[in-house]
Design a protein around this nucleic acid. Sequence first.
DNA 1: GAATCTAAAGCCATAATAGCCTCCTGATGG
DNA 2: CCATCAGGAGGCTATTATGGCTTTAGATTC
Lengths: 134, 134
Amino acid sequence: MLITRASEYALLSLILLSKTDSPMDSDTLSKELSISKSFLAKILQSLAKAEILSSYKGVNGGFSLRKEPKEISMLDVASCVEGKAPAVFECAPSLEDCPSEKASTCSIWPFLHKLQGKIDFFLANLTLADLLDD
Amino acid sequence: MLITRASEYALLSLILLSKTDSPMDSDTLSKELSISKSFLAKILQSLAKAEILSSYKGVNGGFSLRKEPKEISMLDVASCVEGKAPAVFECAPSLEDCPSEKASTCSIWPFLHKLQGKIDFFLANLTLADLLDD
DNA sequence: GAATCTAAAGCCATAATAGCCTCCTGATGG
DNA sequence: CCATCAGGAGGCTATTATGGCTTTAGATTC
C-alpha cells in the first residue's frame, strides 16, 4: 500500500491542531473530523512517537503541535503514520539488492528510482505551513 | 484509499510496454514483472477501457500503448485504475456539497482543497515520458 | 468451420486496512 | 488518597484490496 487513509486523518488532525493553542483531546478531534475515535487515537499516538505532536495525559490533556508547521513535511507525516516512507514500489532500494534473478538486466529500475525521487521530493517539500499560508 | 498497488502495477506495465513495439500479452507481462497474472489482467483491462492501451485478442495479441508517453499522465493512470481520481480526502468537491451540518463553518476545507490541487497538479504534470527521459 | 490463442468478465478466497471496544497507565484536582 | 480525565495498548470485527480460478467471447490460423 502506498498511501492509506491513516495519512489523510493525520493531516486533517494536524491542520485542526495548528489552529488551536491549547491541547485538543482525541475525542474532540474525532468528533470535529467525523473520524473513528479509536483509529484516530492510534494515528495520534504515532505522530506523538515521531515527535510531531506532544501528548498530555490527565484532565485538560490532549495533543498539540510539537514543531512549527514549516518543519512538518508530508513525507514525515506519511512515514511515521504508515510505518515507513510511502514507497511507490516494492522494488529494492538499490539495483544490487534486487532479489530477482534478472537483477543485472532489470530494465525498469532506473525509471522506478526516478519516480520515487520525484515523489519523495514533492512530499518532503510540501509542509503543513504550505497549506496554512494564504 | 488514496493510491493502491494497482497504480504501481499499471505504471510498471506502461514502462515495460513503452520499450516494445509489438503487443505484449498479460501472461508475459505478469512474468516479466513478477505480478499476479489475474490481478494484472484486470488492471490492463482498465487501462484499455481508458484508451491508454490498445488490446488485441487472438494469436500474437496483447496490449500496446495507445498514446504517446508524454500524453500519459500519472493522474490519468491512477484515475482509471483506482476507479476514481486519487482523492486525498473524502471531503466534498465543493464547500456547498459538504454533508456535514457544520458545512458553513468548515474551517479546514480550504486547506484540503489547496492540498488536493497541489497533488493533482503534480500527478497531472508527471507523465510517462518524464520517467523515460534520461 | 474447427482448433487455438488471448482478452473480458465473473465469482470466490485470502490479506490488509479501517474501525470498535475494553482494559491499563499516568496525570490532575479535590 | 481518591475520583476522574485522557493517553497507551491490545484484541476483535467489518470492510476493502489483492489475488486465484473459471467461463465467455473475439480473433487468428489452418
